[in-house]
């Protein structure tokens, strides 16, 4: 088929011919828009909820931290948890700001490059959260037991318990990475599990890096 013929066939496509009332006429009347609007709003509400949860966690860990400045045994786990809580605030705030500042009328390559870079940084942030997650259990247990019930886990179980828990966190992390690489393709249709599995196995990073590389290559003259 010659290209002029392709162009001619293309120009004859009429969306109004096949569908009663016309495909775009229906869109113009706004049918079904609520579904899209609620999905976009849902994303922003989800991020706002994450920020609120992060603020709550930061306030709790912050007040505990301030009350135990002189006691290194409790100060260190509290600082670790406070740092994690601050990350829980900063990451969604950044996403929310970026979402609100997206200007879709920018030239396609410029916006897609920006979005690809943003996606890549999000994947990296999520990757760090997944890696550090298993290690948070130990400081959380120490601070929660002490802050909520007045139980000193150092005295109750001793330093070997802390070391064993950190070692267990490392084991869980390594096992999760291995399982994601080995069985990630069986993740099924669960979005959350797939996202965790892809993040741990490094697949999300490869995809995000790949798209950024594609956009950069498209932009360059060849």
């Amino acid at each position: 088929m010659e290209f002029e013929e392709i162009k001619s066939i293309w120009s004859q496509i009429d969306p109004h011919a096949k569908e009663k009332g016309g495909f775009e006429a229906r869109l113009l009347r706004g049918l079904g828009m609520d579904r899209v609007r609620s999905r976009l709003a849902g994303l922003q509400v989800g991020l706002a909820f994450e920020i609120l949860a992060g603020v709550g966690a930061a306030l709790m860990t912050g007040s505990y931290l301030a009350a135990h400045l002189g006691d290194l045994r409790f100060l260190i786990p509290a600082v670790v948890l406070h740092f994690a809580a601050m990350t829980l605030i900063i990451v969604p705030v950044r996403q929310l700001v970026t979402l609100r500042m997206i200007d879709y009328s920018q030239p396609v390559v410029a916006l897609q490059k920006r979005l690809a870079a943003f996606r890549l940084s999000r994947v990296r942030e999520a990757g760090w959260l997944l890696v550090l997650g298993p290690f948070l259990w130990t400081p959380l247990a120490i601070v929660a037991a002490h802050g909520l019930f007045g139980i000193d886990l150092y005295e109750g179980f001793g330093i070997p318990w802390v070391v064993a828990n950190l070692a267990f966190g490392l084991f869980v992390l390594l096992a999760a990475i291995w399982a994601s690489r080995r069985y990630g393709h069986r993740a099924g249709t669960s979005r959350v599990w797939r996202s965790v599995s892809d993040g741990l196995a490094g697949r999300s990073l490869v995809v995000a890096q790949g798209f950024l590389a594609d956009v950069t290559a498209f932009e360059s003259d060849d």
């Binding site: 879709y104 009328s105 920018q106 396609v108 797939r194 892809d198």
Partner: peptide
């Protein structure tokens, strides 16, 4: 510009699934 930017982002979002 607007239409392609939305469409490409949509396609990227659904590409993995």
């Amino acid at each position: 510009r607007v239409a392609l930017n939305v469409a490409i982002s949509f396609a990227r979002r659904t590409a993995v699934s």
